[in-house]
Lab assay of single mutants.
Amino acid sequence: NITNLCPFDEVFNATRFASVYAWNRKRISNCVADYSVLYNLAPFFTFKCYGVSPTKLNDLCFTNVYADSFVIRGDEVRQIAPGQTGNIADYNYKLPDDFTGCVIAWNSNKLDSKVSGNYNYLYRLFRKSNLKPFERDISTEIYQAGNKPCNGVAGFNCYFPLRSYSFRPTYGVGHQPYRVVVLSFELLHAPATVCGPKKST
């Protein structure tokens, strides 16, 4: 009989979030998941669920729940959905087409922007091929755009693959930082360890 609440607040209220290319994953298990708490945590810009209804979450049980978190800019949030393409979905964080879970995003301009520009958040701009779903690539190998090998040196047709967002508070919403948490629900042929409040007794 599990009584402890799932530590969603640790994920959502973390002081620092990860850069999207090096997104963070927390496995959540053996706890009571009260998803209604999430609705009250922040004024969400996005709370979209796929393959599951957000209002039914509190009635369900899962084997595992994974919470992935990272920062992107406002106009990239739409890429965090099944079947999307674009720089983020292709080279940084890719959801599977049959994704079961929820994408939660909110504006973090007050936390993640600086007047002089916050350069701490990076994204991958160049990659030889698209990522597979939930693949994480943290390599910093020089990207070869031409025929000549780069031998690890940046220059003509040889690019450092990561680029930094420079978040400034005066930017338009599309270029402001957004914190994203992706909850993916895993149903294996194994005992369910993460249940809503109704199912945990």
Rank of each mutant, 00 (worst) to 15 (best):
T3Y: 10
N4K: 15
P7W: 08
P7L: 09
V11N: 05
F12A: 07
A14M: 08
A14G: 09
T15G: 09
R16Y: 14
F17M: 08
S19Y: 02
Y21N: 05
Y21S: 04
A22N: 13
W23P: 04
R27W: 09
R27A: 11
I28R: 04
I28E: 03
I28S: 06
S29M: 09
V32H: 11
D34R: 08
V37H: 12
L38M: 10
L38P: 05
L38K: 05
Y39V: 13
N40Y: 10
N40A: 12
L41V: 13
F44S: 15
F44I: 14
F45E: 15
T46L: 12
T46K: 14
T46G: 09
C49K: 02
G51S: 09
S53I: 09
K56E: 13
L57P: 07
L57F: 08
D59K: 12
D59S: 13
L60P: 08
T63I: 09
T63D: 13
Y66Q: 09
F70E: 00
F70I: 02
V71W: 01
I72L: 10
R78G: 11
I80Q: 01
I80H: 01
P82H: 02
D90I: 05
D90N: 15
Y93S: 01
K94N: 06
K94R: 08
L95T: 04
P96R: 05
T100S: 10
G101C: 01
W106K: 05
N107I: 02
S108Y: 01
K110Q: 10
D112P: 01
S113W: 02
S113R: 02
G117S: 04
Y119H: 11
L122T: 10
Y123T: 11
K128E: 11
L131G: 01
P133K: 05
E135Q: 13
R136D: 02
R136K: 12
D137P: 02
D137N: 03
I138Q: 10
S139R: 10
S139W: 04
E141N: 13
E141W: 07
I142A: 04
Q144H: 06
G146K: 02
Y159D: 00
L162S: 02
S166E: 00
P169Y: 05
T170F: 06
V173M: 14
V173R: 13
G174R: 06
H175A: 02
Q176L: 03
P177G: 01
P177K: 01
R179G: 00
R179M: 00
V182T: 05
L183M: 08
L187H: 12
H189R: 13
P197D: 12
K198R: 15
K199L: 12
S200H: 14
S200G: 14
S200M: 15
S200P: 13
T201S: 14
